[in-house]
Design a binder for these strands. Sequence first.
DNA 1: GATGAATGAGTATTCATTCAT
DNA 2: TATGAATGAATACTCATTCAT
Lengths: 204, 204, 204, 204
Amino acid sequence: MTERGEATRQRLLDAAAAVFSERGYARATTKEIARAAAVSEGTIYRHFADKKELFGAAFIGRNASNAVAITGLPNLAGTKSVRENLQFLMRAIEDIEANVAPLQAAMSSDAELARSLFSEAPQGEGGAPRITPLQPLAAYLAAEQKLGRVRADVDAADAAFALFAIPFTAVTSRRLARAAGLTAEVDMMGALDVVLRGLEPSQA
Amino acid sequence: MTERGEATRQRLLDAAAAVFSERGYARATTKEIARAAAVSEGTIYRHFADKKELFGAAFIGRNASNAVAITGLPNLAGTKSVRENLQFLMRAIEDIEANVAPLQAAMSSDAELARSLFSEAPQGEGGAPRITPLQPLAAYLAAEQKLGRVRADVDAADAAFALFAIPFTAVTSRRLARAAGLTAEVDMMGALDVVLRGLEPSQA
Amino acid sequence: MTERGEATRQRLLDAAAAVFSERGYARATTKEIARAAAVSEGTIYRHFADKKELFGAAFIGRNASNAVAITGLPNLAGTKSVRENLQFLMRAIEDIEANVAPLQAAMSSDAELARSLFSEAPQGEGGAPRITPLQPLAAYLAAEQKLGRVRADVDAADAAFALFAIPFTAVTSRRLARAAGLTAEVDMMGALDVVLRGLEPSQA
Amino acid sequence: MTERGEATRQRLLDAAAAVFSERGYARATTKEIARAAAVSEGTIYRHFADKKELFGAAFIGRNASNAVAITGLPNLAGTKSVRENLQFLMRAIEDIEANVAPLQAAMSSDAELARSLFSEAPQGEGGAPRITPLQPLAAYLAAEQKLGRVRADVDAADAAFALFAIPFTAVTSRRLARAAGLTAEVDMMGALDVVLRGLEPSQA
DNA sequence: GATGAATGAGTATTCATTCAT
DNA sequence: TATGAATGAATACTCATTCAT
């Protein structure tokens, strides 16, 4: 692939991510993506087999860059306070979801698309088609349990889910509200504090 | 409207909800909806002005029947145990979301649709375009706080959000997984127990 | 046919003439005609085989009533002045054309419609599918020639055509202008005077 | 636009004029126009925004080429005989009308179309939505009046109208007759002679 | 590599017509 | 006789995809 070709491809990926997020998969037209990437429509097909593949490539790209962002997080265990760390994690998850959610939404409401995407895509060894913040989060909590900064008698996976649900729900609610032209005020941190109270080791 | 007409209309609403859930708004074709309702395509337009209105009607219908299901829930306060009640609520919310979420997803990836739907629809006095289980949930918690069965020093709204996030996230995750042809095992009740621990009044 | 049926039929004919004139044949919908006649759509088909037949019936009706209006006109010969009579005739033709023209226009731009209409309709003995003011006009002029009030050396048919063309063109121009949202000022009487000058017997 | 594109566009314009003339605006289908132009239906929309625009372009095209044909005519004044010139003009107008009239008829029976067409189209400075042979005809007559070859005491505009009405009515009558599967014999030249007699300067 | 013209299958919607009541 | 629900063929228009240049 020449340098020029590579650049065009990248421009197409960016344009595609933007347009798919804005319009959803079905309403996004190749024409609009081409225009956003400042190339002709035909050019898309030199780089991607079809629209579906273009979507997949854009989605994977986003997902991958997010994976990098989270993986390192368990190492936070023991530093600062648990509360500070979780607040940080919450914001991180919020960012990630805000990034991936629109593409995910586009997929979730189109069963065929999702199926064909995952059946063709090279899946990771765990078979996880999508990098989820759940595992790193559970790992972090488990680490803190070892350090005695989180109650030992809670299931780390359950707690991770309760925590993850907060930014996930916040992001999704906001998306829905925005789509309807409204604004949804969500106090993620207040909800976090409620959960935190259940994680604190007893002050005996 | 004759009895026959009324029946047809209802069949169309059910078919529409099913197809929109499965395919999303854009990919759902009037042809398929008609076939699912066992009527001709033209019949759709005797009952609804256009596809958008059909979607809106299906959505409102689902939403309304859910509203009924939730409204009474705050009265549970004081009965049984808090844990049992919340488990019950969690399942109820799960059902509701499983019902509405697909339609909401269909909408969320189509900003224009959502906007036109909410701008035209006669909004309730609260202006809430969608009945959310959040308020009844918060009301229930506040009632339990008065009874001393829930810690008084947590914000009922924050706690409600933390709780609501659990079934909401569970449902959505499952949808995504199913769309991809996978299965997501989610332990809602485990996560609930974590949050519950933060709500119990101190055992002084 | 019952009295009620007859009344309904007449209401349909009037409504049809109005709607066909306003919208043209193709854009006129049976739905709109039914509404204008304050009957249900299905009722149309109890009285007419199809839309085409309804159009034909409405058209024939108009045409027939016009025929009555013109037939007597040749008897004017010898009364008043030729100029006054022709001015009167001109206005009469104008009214007639204004009446029939819209229906004719609807037909003229739809070859199939016209053909099927005339091939099926019971044609007059002269085979003339449409009563034209040309013959009565020529008859009137011939009569005046006999009386010496119109030059004998012009062909009555040619003169009739030249005269008929004036109100015909005036009406049509106005229709076109009105369709375009403009107004066309046409001085029919001025044009008539020009032609008249060619008809006056030489003042030797 | 590439050369190939330009050729396709022209083919579409010709096909459109033909089909619109034959069927009228509403009954002319994009499918038939495409077939007549030997292109696919989609191609129409690469060249024209919609059916209305295609019609407008076809109409304007015809109109414009006619404008060229007429503009020079007033210069005939003084050459040959008035009679010969008017016979020539009559045939010219006949041709022009035969060209434009069908499209005009297609429009006149569709008020909405006409209005939207003229309200959007860039109108000439005179605001005239259609080039009419009336003005050049009046100009020619006025010139002949100056030369003493036409009576000075007739209004040139009135005379122009009387003359114009002849070929206009002839063309329209023929169209109606043809639509009905009949033939209308019209002697334009006879009618012209009648009018001419009113224009000749007195042989004093 | 890139363009833009062309394609044709597919979509929502309309409307004359039929039919059960 | 009249109604209005239902039909289904037809229509304008869209859009992912192909292809000649």
